[in-house]
Design a protein around this nucleic acid. Structure first.
Length: 476
RNA sequence: GGCGCGUUGGUGUAAUUGGUUAACACGCCGCCCUCUCAAGGCGGAGAGUACGGGUUCGAUCCCCGUACGCGCUACCA
C-alpha cells in the first residue's frame, strides 16, 4: 500500500447502530489499523426529514463502548473537518457550481408531483422508471428566467449517454454498468442539502480517503460516483463493498426477526470482545488453514485483509454467538467479570453488598453462562433460603441422611475454610465411613444446602456458602 | 420489470495459482464423567460443492445458461 491509508465510517444517524453498520465500521477499523492508517468518523446527516435527536451521541457512545475509536471525527477533531455533512453545505454548493460550469450538471425545476406523474406514466407504459432528462435541454435563458422567478430547483448529474463504467471492487472484482441505466441523479436537493452521492464523493476526496469500505447496497450507485470523480478530475479511491448480514431465512437482517441494534446485544449480556470477535468472523476469515476462532482485537488487526472478506451475505447465527460469548465468559478475569455481572444480580433483587461472596458466586456460575443476563437465574440458588416440600423433608430427616450430616459436619468443622476443591473429597470420605453412596449421599446434602434438587455441583455450592453457612444448614 | 451482486452439510467458514476420503467451528445425536444441570473429554450423523451444459486427462475452483436469494431502481442514506 503505497498511499497512506485513510478510511471512514460514514453512518447516517438513525438513532441506533445496526449490526451491519457495526461490522462495516469494524472492517474499516481493522483495515486502518492493519495498515497503520487512519480511521475517520463522518456523520452523513443530509436528510433533514430524518433527523433524530440524540442519535449522534448514541452512535458515538456505542462505537466507544465497542472499542472502535476513531482518529478523526465530530468529537475527535482532525484537520479535515467539519465531520458533520450538515456543516459543509457551502462546500457542496461550491463544487456543484463547478460541475454546472463544466457542463457536468444542470438545473431542473420539476416539482415532486410532476416527477411522480412522470413515473406513473412510465410505469403504465411498462417502461423503466427513470428521470426523463427533460430539463437537460433547457436553454441558458430559460434557466436564468426560472431562477430569477424563484421557482424551486434541484441540480442533477448529467450522466454520459451510451457509455460503460467499469471498476474493480476489492471484494468482488470487476464490475461494469451501462450508463444508459444510470439515472440523472439529483446532486443538490431543493433545500440546499446535497444527496449522499454528491456529498460522499466530495468529502471522500477532501478528506483524502484512500479506501471506501461500505455496505453492498451502494454497489450499484458506484457509476454515479465515478462519473463525479471524473468530472472533477479527481483520483478514485479503492472500493470494497461488504456483504449484507441476513436473517435465518436469508432476508436482510431486520427488526422483525430479532434485535438489530448493537446496543441491544450489549444490554442482553454479550461481552463486547465476544461480539467484536463474532462479527469479524461473519463474512471474513483469516484463511491459510487457520482453525482458531477466538481472536483478540489485536490479533484481528494483525490478520485482517479486505480481500478475504466474503462476497456472499452471511446469516447471523445467534447460537454460535452464544457459544462464543460463553467461551469469553469462562476465560474472563474474575474481578472484571464480577463488575460486569453485578448489575444483572442487582436488578434481580440480589443483595451484592458482600463483594467477596459475590466473587465466589461469579466464579461458581461462569461456566453455566452464555450471556450475562442469565446470571441471576444461575446465582439465585446461592442466596435463597432453604424451604422444602414434605417429600424433600422426609429425605433429609431419615436416619441415613442424619448419619451423613453428622459425619460431614465433623469433617467440615475440621476444615479451616472451604475452598473450591476441598469439599468434594469430604463426601468421598463420608461415603467410605457410612457406606452411603450415590443419590442417597448427595441428594440430602444438596437439599439441605440449597433446598433444590438440581443445581451446580456441591463443591461449588459449599465453596460459595462458606464454612459457617454450610455447618448451619447441615444442622437439621 | 430492468440492472447489479451472490449460491460449499441446518448455520459461519476452509480447501497451495484445477489433482483432497471436501477440512474446521456452532448446532444436533450418542457415550464418558456424575447426585442433578451445565462445563469438559471422546465419538457419530450430516454437503459430492444450487441445477444444466461446456473447456480439460481431471473441476468446489475457468466459461456459458437456468433457477433461486439479495441489493439497487427517491429531492433516503
Amino acid at each position: 500500500m503505497n498511499k497512506k491509508v485513510r478510511v471512514r465510517f460514514a453512518p447516517s444517524p438513525t438513532g441506533y447502530l445496526h449490526l451491519g453498520s457495526f461490522r462495516t465500521a469494524l472492517f474499516n477499523y481493522l483495515f486502518a489499523h492493519h495498515h497503520g492508517g487512519k480511521f475517520i468518523l463522518r456523520i452523513e446527516d443530509t436528510d433533514q426529514s430524518r433527523k433524530v435527536e440524540g442519535a449522534v451521541e448514541n452512535l458515538i457512545n456505542i462505537l466507544n463502548e465497542m472499542g472502535l475509536s476513531y482518529d478523526e471525527g465530530p468529537d475527535a477533531g482532525g484537520e479535515f473537518g467539519p465531520y458533520f455533512q450538515s456543516q459543509r453545505l457551502e462546500l457542496y454548493r461550491k463544487y456543484c457550481d463547478e460541475l454546472l460550469a463544466g457542463g457536468h450538471a444542470y438545473y431542473a425545476f420539476e416539482s415532486a408531483e410532476e416527477l411522480e406523474e412522470m413515473r406513473r406514466v412510465q410505469q403504465m407504459q411498462g417502461k423503466q422508471t427513470m428521470y426523463d432528462r427533460r430539463a437537460r435541454n433547457l436553454t441558458d435563458n430559460e434557466v436564468k428566467e426560472r431562477l430569477a422567478s424563484g421557482i424551486p430547483y434541484v441540480i442533477r448529474l448529467k450522466v454520459p449517454i451510451d457509455s460503460e463504467i467499469r471498476f474493480t471492487d476489492l471484494i468482488r472484482g470487476n464490475v461494469k454498468i451501462d450508463t444508459n441505466l444510470v439515472d440523472d441523479q439529483v446532486l443538490l436537493k431543493g433545500d440546499g442539502f446535497p444527496t449522499y452521492h454528491l456529498a460522499n464523493v466530495i468529502d471522500d476526496h477532501l478528506m483524502n480517503i484512500s479506501h471506501i469500505i461500505r455496505g453492498e447496497e451502494w454497489l450499484t450507485s458506484v457509476p454515479k460516483h465515478i462519473i463525479l470523480y471524473n468530472a472533477f478530475g479527481w483520483e478514485i479511491p479503492q472500493m470494497a463493498h461488504v456483504p449484507l448480514i441476513l436473517n435465518p431465512d436469508k432476508t436482510k437482517l431486520s427488526k422483525r426477526q430479532g434485535d438489530v441494534a448493537t446496543e441491544d446485544y450489549l444490554k442482553k449480556g454479550y461481552l463486547r470482545e465476544a461480539l467484536l470477535n463474532f462479527m469479524a468472523l461473519l463474512g471474513w476469515n483469516p484463511g491459510e488453514g487457520e482453525e482458531k476462532e477466538i481472536f483478540s482485537k489485536e490479533e484481528l488487526i494483525n490478520l485482517f485483509s479486505i480481500e478475504r472478506v466474503n462476497s456472499a451475505g452471511a446469516v447471523f447465527n445467534i447460537d454460535k454467538l452464544n457459544w462464543m460469548n460463553g467461551e469469553y465468559i469462562k476465560k474472563y478475569d474474575i474481578n472484571e467479570l464480577t463488575e460486569l455481572i453485578l448489575p444483572y444480580l442487582n436488578s434481580g433483587g440480589i443483595d451484592t453488598s458482600d463483594l467477596a461472596k459475590t466473587k465466589r458466586v461469579v466464579f461458581a456460575i461462569k461456566n453455566y453462562l452464555n450471556r450475562l443476563d442469565e446470571a441471576y437465574e444461575q446465582a439465585k440458588v446461592y442466596y435463597s433460603s432453604v424451604s422444602l416440600s414434605d417429600a424433600q423433608n422426609d429425605i433429609i430427616c431419615n436416619e441415613i441422611s442424619k448419619q451423613v450430616f453428622a459425619a460431614l459436619t465433623s469433617k467440615v468443622d475440621a476444615l479451616l475454610e472451604i475452598t473450591i476443591d476441598n469439599f468434594k473429597p469430604l463426601l468421598s470420605e463420608v461415603q467410605k465411613e457410612t457406606g452411603v453412596k450415590g443419590k442417597n449421599l448427595f441428594m440430602p446434602v444438596r437439599l439441605a444446602l440449597t433446598g433444590e434438587e438440581h443445581g451446580p455441583e456441591l463443591g461449588l455450592i459449599a465453596y460459595v456458602l462458606g464454612k459457617e453457612e454450610v455447618l448451619k444448614r447441615l444442622k437439621i
